[in-house]
């Protein structure tokens, strides 16, 4: 359910109240990117197709951030991970949790609201999927 307007509507939107993670697929080589790219980083093709990414994935690696970097809305400590989605996109994402993080763990993306100068805005975060509940 939408909690607030996205910080950046190029990253995700809500379609009929459903989270829609925006991605792009290269028409020439099939590489997939989130957030979407205009041109392909892999083969430099300019022909990209918009698509929606799967919100389920796994942690490639992570760190627990204890000091707030300049400009961040996220309260430390938080987890910053490289996430790979089941649909193939690889990108950085935070979790508001820090306990139980492991390389290879299953995760699910959702939106969370953050306070900004212009009111609450939504960003993508991930949650760990409890062991056994991850549908492969």
């Amino acid at each position: 359910m939408p909690t607030a307007e996205p910080i950046d509507a190029n990253v995700f939107t809500f379609e009929a109240d459903e989270l829609c993670i925006k991605a792009a697929e290269c028409a020439a080589c099939g590489a997939r990117f989130h957030p979407p790219r205009q041109y392909c980083a892999r083969c430099a093709s300019r022909e990209m197709r918009a698509r929606v990414a799967d919100p389920a994935g796994k942690i490639e690696t992570f760190t627990i951030v204890h000091q707030r970097p300049p400009g961040s809305l996220v309260e430390p400590p938080y987890t910053l991970a490289d996430v790979q989605l089941r649909s193939g996109e690889r990108f950085s994402c935070v979790s508001l949790d820090t306990a139980g993080m492991t390389i290879g763990a299953s995760v699910q993306l959702r939106v969370a609201a953050f306070d900004t100068d212009s009111g609450p805005r939504a960003g993508l975060v991930f949650d760990l999927v409890p062991e056994g509940e991850a549908n492969a």
């Binding site: 990253v11 951030v65 910053l80 950085s92 960003g123 993508l124």
Partner: peptide
Amino acid sequence: YGVQMGQSV
């Protein structure tokens, strides 16, 4: 977006 979402560390 990445800076606001705590990714630029």
